[in-house]
Design a protein around this nucleic acid. Structure first.
Lengths: 172, 172
DNA sequence: CTTGGAATGTCAACAACACTGACATAAACA
DNA sequence: TGTTTATGTCAGTGTTGTTGACATTCCAAG
């Protein structure tokens, strides 16, 4: 199951679909696995020093990206339960990295903001992560980067792609 | 140190380095985050039914890829502690998905193999994961796939890239 | 042959992060 | 007024990771 070979004459139906062989796909799968480890390695080291984890990083990242976002919105983006997110947010608020303000229009909502300390940690984390991404982009070049983004976008679930594309996008 | 600037005429090196702006890098970071969720979503659903987790999937995947691999080799690839891996392996062995054979040359080593049941689960998991990967590859096209792989490879840690490239590579 | 170290396995304790289920509160809405 | 929505919290559970300690087996060097 899963071979794309449809041309019994060999020669792979004239046009090259070699990039869709099971072997190529397996390489792609392992590339995702190993690359994701690299992708998280630098922030993980910083977070470990401060006894935070990836969940804190994700919350900080998306609050930074969308200041004033609500808890519910964050839940949708992160795809975890409110109990799980709440544990993380509570510690970030207690530590003075995140501020939670009651909504003006709808007083049930809590709007989340990074404090100065929160912004500082965000910068430290994203500097590390961007640095690795920048090096990878430089090595691969602009055309490769475009392909990288295309494949990743096609790999997302529909809802996640929606969140991804909904980002404020100052360039591109 | 790593600049791709080749055009001394200035002008942002003539060629556009726009793909290295912080905004572009942030997009790449979020693309990795959202795409990885999609990447693991299908196997996760299958694993949840069988009350296994991603750690089991990873072990099964790499034992399938390299039948007869030793525990120590697996530890290096997976980057976890032996205690953590051992817990996973023990359950897989108990459930009859993995077989552990004492080494012939060196009897301290355990060589790991998937049983028929193990191979069956591996196929179920990797079919699901390959299917998503294949769709993404098809949508993006061969050139994009090449860029995708280039960027991912550049993103890995040195050791991980070593493991990645050490794979038996039947095509490309 | 003895000993040191490597490879492996196991026990215990712990922490991060996810889950479910249940319940509480306040505010918006119909 | 009654229902739904947004949020928070408590309790319990499971997976996956960690450290530290200790035992076993066995290769290899002295």
């Amino acid at each position: 199951m899963g071979t794309i070979m449809t041309d019994p004459s060999g020669q792979n139906s004239g046009e090259s679909l070699l990039f869709l062989t099971d072997d190529q796909l397996r390489k792609g799968i392992e590339a995702m696995f190993f690359a994701y480890r690299g992708f998280t390695a630098d922030p993980d080291r910083i977070l470990a020093e401060k006894s935070y984890g990836r969940a804190h990083h994700r919350a900080i990242h998306f609050i930074h990206r969308s200041p004033g976002t609500t808890v519910n919105n964050l839940l949708n983006i992160l795809g975890v339960t409110k109990q799980s997110l709440n544990r993380v947010l509570r510690s970030l608020i207690e530590d003075g990295l995140v501020e939670s303000r009651v909504g003006q229009k709808d007083k049930r909502e809590r709007h989340l903001y990074l404090t100065d300390a929160g912004e500082a940690l965000e910068r430290e984390l994203s500097d590390a992560q961007r640095s690795r991404m920048r090096d990878a982009y430089r090595q691969a070049g602009p055309d490769a980067v475009q392909g990288f983004r295309q494949v990743l976008e096609a790999m997302m679930d529909r809802d996640m792609r929606k969140h991804f594309l909904a980002m404020k996008d100052k360039s591109t």
